[in-house]
Every structure is written in structure tokens, then in C-alpha cells.
Computed example of a mutant assay.
Amino acid sequence: MTISITGSDAPPTAPRRSGSQVSLLALGTFAVGTDAFVVAGFLPQMADELGVTEAAAGYSVTVFAICYAVFSPLLATVTATVPRRRLLVAALVVLGLANLGTAVAPNFALLMTSRVLAALGAAAYTPNAGAVASSLVTAERRGRALALVVSGLTVATAIGVPLGNLASRVMGWRSALGLVALLCLLIGAGLAVLLSKLPGGNRVPLAARLSVLRNPGVRLILPVTVLGMAAAYTAYAYAIPAFDAVGISPDAAQWMLFLYGVGAVAGAQSSGRLTDRFGGTRVLVVGYAVMTCTLVAFGTLTLTSAVLPVPVGVLAFAWGASSWCQTPPQQHRLIAAAPNEAPLVIALNSSGIYIGIGVGTLVGGLAGAGDATWMFFSGAVIAVIAAVLLVATGRVARHG
């Protein structure tokens, strides 16, 4: 996610109007988040209809995430001078059409192609939505505006994915993706009508955007983001078969996905405050410890015949919370390591998140989506590696 504060010095619109525009931008990030993760809600049906294994179908998440991470800095460079409203509307149109392509794809190859196009739209939309939101409000309200837009992604894990699972069971997975496409196009139309005209910015060469990687602190901290998200996502794309392996039927899995999402929101919201109080490294150590214990507990349950829906629900909540508590403390550590280049390191951290999601999904599917034991225990091992690397680099970030 490449964030530039384009137009941040432009005079904001009237508070009421700017508030509605920021809310609409947040709906757009909700649509992006739902699109990115909704496959987890109907993976078995999609794999069955396309004639591929569930592990192969899960790689559609890998392709989306890796392409997002790669395209984000490239698109930020290429589209730097494009007016913001035009860019955001175009991004949502691309995302909507890509979802329609996924919904009607007759085979797996075309579905994967459509996921690449969806990643293009998402990579163009999310970073610029945050930058535009910050430019629409006064300086003292920019933090809240940015938080609202970014919260669309975490809320999507709480609501969008379970709703996608429900829609797929009622109407089929293709119709569920069609609804996501419709949402993208409707929000795009709303932005075309309601969003203020904002100019593009100055073109910044890609080499300049990536120059911050010469900072040794940044180079040491970013791999923690990749490993942490990889650990969290070894099983998430395969959530339906994974929950089935611990005694939760596909029909009941939507409630576990909902609890995961509630945990994700709680973890993201609380970790920011805890980071301010205790420092990013301490918060992350606790987060990785919780993640490791949670994934080990899930893996152990797969080796038994016990059906324990309440403990599984608690574990699903902890899984979501430990997965999404990582971003605020990692941003804190990166900004402390490169205080004069905060927008760039936040952007690189976001790319690291999606690389981690892609890697985790790839690792989770290596033994096949039917091997939930592998998915959970491999995630736990990666979480331990992330924690070790975190401790080893803990002194790099000032006040980390």
C-alpha cells in the first residue's frame, strides 16, 4: 500500500460533506477487503466447480496478494499525476469488472487472470483513498479520517467474509462475487458524483520511493511484517476445511469467520493504544505468543475427534486478534527507524503485509488444503521465527 499525502494542503470541503466523502472512501476499502479475503468463505465450492484442488484454488489469494504488493509502488509512480477522483473511480471500476470476470470464469486459468486484474484495481485504490481522505479534512481530523478509511479492511474480515460465505450458500459463489462487483461499481459511481476534484501530485521516481530500503533498520524490520502475516495466513484462505477439521461444519463456519473478524477489529484497535503505552516490540511479542499458542491449539484439535465449538470460537477470536494486532506496532517501529520518511515506510509495510499473506497461503496449501494439521502447525512455526527475528531487531527501532 503506497501512501502519499497528495493534496494534503488543499483546503478541506465543508465538514459535513467531507465526512460523507470519507465514509464513502471507507466503503471502498471495505469492498477491497471483502474482495481480497472473501474467497476463504467459499473455497471448497469454487474448487469443486472449477475442477481443481482446494489448495490450488487457495493460490488465487496468493496471486492477488503478491500482485497487490508488486503493483502498489509501480502504480503509485505511474499514476502520480492523475487527478485523484478519476484514479479512484477507475480503480473501483477495474476491481468491479475483475470480480465480474472471476464470477463468470469458465476455468481456473481465466479466474487467476481476473485476480491479477483485481489486484491492479485494489493496489490503485486503497493507498490513494487514505491520502485523499487526509486531504479532505482539517489537520486535527486527519488521523481519524485515515483510521476510518483503513478500518474498512479490518471490518471486511468481520462482516464481508462471513456475508460472502452466507451469500455463496444461498446463491452460489459466483453470485457472491457478483455482489462484490456490484458494490465496487456502486461505490465508484458514488465517488464520481460526490467526491471533490483533487489534482494529482508530482511524479516521484520508483528508485526514490524505494531508497528508504537503504536504511538498515527498515531492512531488518520489514521481514517481521512478512513473517508475521505469513504465519497468520497459512490457514485463513482454507478456513472452511480448516474449521471442518476441528469439528465445525461448513454451515457453522460463518460464525467462526465472524468471530475471527471481531477479533481482527479488536486486535487492530487495541494494539495501537497498547503500542503507545508499552512500545511496539512488547506488543508484538505478546501478539506472536498468542498466535503461536492459538495455532498450536488448533493443530492439536485436528489430531483429536473432539467437537468443542465454544473453545474453537474463542480460538478463532484470538487468531483474528493476533493476526491484525501487528500493523500499528510495526508501523511504530518503522517510523522510529526512519522518522523523516514515514509515508514511504508505511507504504512498504503494507506491501509486506500482502507479501506475507501470499506466502502464508502458499505455505498453507503445500500439503493440500485437506491437511489442516500442517496448516496450523506450519503457521505456529513461522510465528515463532517471526518472534525470534523481532527480538533480534527490537533495538533497531527507536522506542520500539
Rank of each mutant, 00 (worst) to 15 (best):
R209S: 13
R214C: 10
V212E: 11
G217P: 05
V212Y: 09
A235Y: 15
L210A: 12
L210I: 11
M229E: 03
V224A: 01
V226S: 02
N215C: 03
V212L: 11
S211P: 05
A231S: 13
G228E: 00
L227K: 00
L213M: 12
L227H: 01
R209W: 12
P223V: 04
L213H: 05
L210Q: 07
A230Y: 04
V224K: 00
S211Y: 10
V226L: 12
L220A: 15
Y233A: 04
G217Y: 07
A231Q: 01
A237H: 04
A239P: 12
T225L: 06
L220W: 15
V224Q: 01
A230K: 02
L227P: 02
P216L: 05
L210P: 02
N215K: 00
V218L: 09
R219M: 11
G217T: 10
G228P: 00
Y233K: 02
G217I: 12
Y238C: 11
T234E: 10
G228V: 00
G228M: 00
Y238R: 09
L210W: 09
L222D: 09
P216N: 07
I240K: 10
Y238N: 09
A235P: 03
R214Y: 06
V224I: 15
Y238K: 10
V226P: 05
A230E: 06
Y238E: 12
L227D: 01
R209K: 15
A231E: 02
V224H: 01
P216M: 04
L210D: 11
Y238G: 10
A232C: 06
P216E: 06
V224R: 00
R219P: 04
Y233G: 03
L220K: 14
P223C: 05
R214L: 12
T234I: 11
Y238H: 09
G217A: 11
V224F: 00
A237S: 14
A230Q: 08
L213R: 05
P223D: 07
A237R: 03
T225P: 05
V218K: 07
A230W: 05
R219C: 06
A237P: 11
L210N: 09
M229S: 13
L222A: 09
A239K: 03
